[in-house]
Design a protein around this nucleic acid. Structure first.
Lengths: 326, 326
DNA sequence: CTGAAAGCGCTTACAG
DNA sequence: CTGAAAGCGCTTACAG
């Protein structure tokens, strides 16, 4: 049988109260008593049951994370940032990937009602923002990662999508490009609108193709633009997968990158270093966003009020061969 | 204040025992009583506190997953398979990524001792196998995903690494290739030894370069072999990143794939479809491995004894242009 | 078919 | 500085 606080108390010849006190390093415990209790704790290998502590204290020291499919290319980075931070704080991390539709959401809301965790980190809700907002209103601490530009009523961590788009445009403009083809993700994403607005502010264009955040989409976007005889000397892709597809389509139709056409992506996924040629791209600090969001939530759980304004982390232009410096 | 079982009991005019019974759909409850209780439950939006249930029942209905860095390319697939399965069973998924060394391990063992979860899924322990084995011996249900060929004393889910290597060799041999260059990952991984053994059994070679599971490693492997004037007409890379690096090095040194040199990878990562040319590779069913392992663990928690032999899922050769059919 | 009571393993006023 | 007792919100023999 595993040891309980009662076992420790008995063997140390004190009350459970006292054991609890040394466990939680409260003051007001005689040094020698404390030492004796600690000895017994070590001897018995006693560790308080997290369930019992949680019940008694009314908190679980666990954080939940709600995510879109875990197979998204930058998911691992965010998750790692979150996991490291949460773990370092001694909290548990409960993962909910809303991957099975309504059933997933039901399971998740159930766990919220069951008070299975103290706070929630959310990425890209996609149709769940209403549910989340409801939970937040009822008192669940929530921090959003990447708010898709909706700037809802909760604390959030975002990145400079607009400035990122602008930096891509400036870089292209500086290298003498003036006729861009822009390949976006779905327009209902706030980040897409922001990246586009930032880019257009510097380098206006009417050659914008809306698509998905996939390689295929990038390929088709370029193929279609070429087929229509549109004239462009550079491509701004809204993520690196799109950019990779664009690179491929350009190569297959005999264009040289960057001589004929320069290409800039977004995200700085691992593949960006390995495309042909390596991709110039706007880096999103995904891991840092995960860390920041987790730290923010943890702070909130500590009782502090969280900033009403999104915490915005800067993007960074990473220059490689697909769009070199002028 | 959120409703408790006592509130429900009071409003329904029954005892907490009865409420508990209808909650857990035990028989022996009068139909009309049960209906009344259910009404109150709905009216109050009552959901049992998972913490309290856990304490009373001595189990948390939570599973933990211990992983290497979450940024590994196929991690998302495995995790998604696990998450979907665990979630569908109504369990929670607690994530531990041992990414901060000894401190991570300490945090993790703490949670084990605190009984924070009922069972454990493990990928690639890397120096933690001893700790895990100890926990398993003390009664923690554990299922290993990809046992690196060590076949330890616990239930595990693996894939046919050996046969996968053999299938790559057969495919190359069938297309008339006889002089392979093999680029492996670190030799202390069981999967590396298995893939190599399977390959060599069909297509013996002394041209084996040990490296890391990275693009750089693949590039350097090919460059070095070429620099040494070694003669080869195909490459078997132990994962797709290595293969991608090999493709690049071959292209940059003027070799044509597959005409001069055919290339086969391993894993079938998303990038495999987007390399130039698209990569023939041995597919590992990562998501299915995650699902299977989770299902296995869940079964074990249900009280059934788990198979002593690893559950082995088949690899599958996916043929693309880098090594086409003969 | 139903309920009073004990128990799960802790924490926390309260009293001394 | 320390402890007895109540309480966190459930489940589960046990008795009827």
């Amino acid at each position: 049988m595993r040891a309980t606080i009662a076992d420790v108390a008995r063997q140390a010849g004190v009350s459970k109260t006292t054991v609890s006190r040394v466990l939680n390093t409260r003051a007001d415990v005689d040094a020698s008593t404390a030492a004796r209790v600690r000895e017994v704790i070590d001897a018995l290998g006693y560790v308080p049951s997290s369930g019992a502590v949680g019940l008694a204290r009314g908190s679980s020291r666990t954080i939940a994370m709600l995510t879109p499919p875990l197979t998204w290319p930058w998911m691992g980075e965010v998750l790692q940032g979150v996991a490291d931070t949460v773990e370092a704080a001694g909290y548990g991390l409960l993962l909910f990937s809303c991957n099975r539709g309504a059933d997933s959401v039901r399971h998740f809301t159930g766990q919220v009602s069951a008070r299975a965790f103290d706070g929630l980190l959310v990425i890209e809700p996609e149709n769940t923002l209403g549910t989340i907002a409801e939970m937040y209103r009822k008192g669940l601490p929530v921090v959003l990662i990447d708010d898709r530009g909706r700037h809802p009523a909760f604390p959030s961590v975002a990145t400079t999508n607009r400035e990122g788009g602008a930096s891509a445009a400036r870089h292209l403009l500086d290298s003498g490009r003036t006729k861009p083809l822009v390949l976006t993700g779905r327009r209902d994403f706030g980040c897409v609108r922001d990246r586009l607005a930032g880019f257009s502010g510097v380098l206006p264009t009417d050659l914008v193709v809306e698509g998905e955040f996939t390689e295929e989409s990038g390929r088709h976007g370029v193929e279609r633009a070429l087929a229509q005889g549109r004239d462009f000397d550079c491509v701004f892709a809204h993520n690196d997968l799109i950019a990779a597809g664009a690179l491929r389509a350009l190569r297959e139709t005999g264009r040289t990158v960057p001589d004929d056409i320069a290409v800039v992506g977004f995200d700085d996924l691992p593949i960006a270093r390995h495309t042909e040629p390596p991709l110039t791209t706007v880096r999103q600090p995904m891991r840092q966003m995960g860390e920041t969001a987790a730290r923010l939530l943890l702070t909130g759980l500590g009782g502090e009020t969280l900033p009403a304004v999104p915490v915005v982390l800067p993007t960074e232009l990473v220059v490689r061969r697909s769009a070199p410096c002028p």
